[in-house]
Amino acid sequence: MSSLTWVFFGVSQEGSKSGPRKNLRLLKANYIKEFTFLRQAEDPLDLKNCYLDLFSLQAREESAIRQAEIEAERIGVGVTAEAQNIFDALSKTLPVRWDKTVIVVMDQVRVSHPYFPESVSGGTPAANERVKKVLELERKRLHARGSSS
């Protein structure tokens, strides 16, 4: 018994239908969980006048995936909303990353739960003091923002 494999791309046309350029949105088949065939539509691609730069599309996809991975690394796992807000605030002025639930600043200073200046450890004394000062200012700013809401 032979099996039939379907290669499916969802294609939708966006914007105006007039003019030589059209925006098309392609959906990869492995992202489709289910679909219902409604009817055969006109081909949204005029194959005689259509050119898809597959290298450019692949580069854009890879760039979007890298950006999504970078953004995902900035989200703490198992941390409170307050901890995430502190991380986001610190990241505006200092290089930060998560090490589980610990905020690592400048690859040397660590800020542990409950993310107060007293929770800062490691790094040079100057770096440690700088992080404590920024953390204290950011906590005041977040507290003021929270109480004004």
Results as ranks from 00 to 15, higher is better:
42 E>Y: 01
138 E>V: 09
17 K>A: 06
122 G>W: 10
121 S>T: 15
58 Q>A: 12
147 S>F: 02
27 L>F: 09
59 A>I: 03
56 S>Q: 13
3 S>K: 10
30 N>R: 12
27 L>D: 00
140 K>T: 07
142 L>K: 05
122 G>Y: 06
79 V>R: 07
2 S>N: 08
53 D>Q: 07
102 V>P: 02
98 W>K: 09
69 E>P: 00
121 S>D: 12
85 N>C: 02
51 Y>V: 15
63 S>Q: 15
65 I>T: 04
121 S>A: 07
63 S>D: 12
135 L>G: 12
77 V>N: 13
148 S>V: 09
35 F>T: 00
85 N>V: 00
146 G>N: 12
123 G>H: 05
30 N>Y: 11
4 L>W: 13
105 V>P: 01
28 K>W: 11
107 D>M: 02
75 I>R: 14
146 G>C: 02
87 F>L: 04
114 P>H: 07
108 Q>T: 15
135 L>T: 07
120 V>P: 05
147 S>D: 01
82 E>D: 14
112 S>D: 13
100 K>F: 02
37 F>I: 14
26 L>P: 03
91 S>W: 04
100 K>G: 03
42 E>S: 11
25 R>P: 06
145 R>D: 03
40 Q>I: 10
14 E>P: 00
46 D>K: 11
130 R>M: 14
83 A>T: 09
69 E>Y: 06
35 F>H: 07
109 V>G: 08
122 G>R: 14
35 F>W: 15
90 L>V: 11
14 E>V: 10
20 P>S: 10
134 V>L: 01
27 L>W: 12
98 W>C: 08
81 A>K: 14
76 G>H: 07
80 T>S: 15
120 V>Q: 05
64 A>E: 11
137 L>V: 01
103 I>L: 08
2 S>I: 11
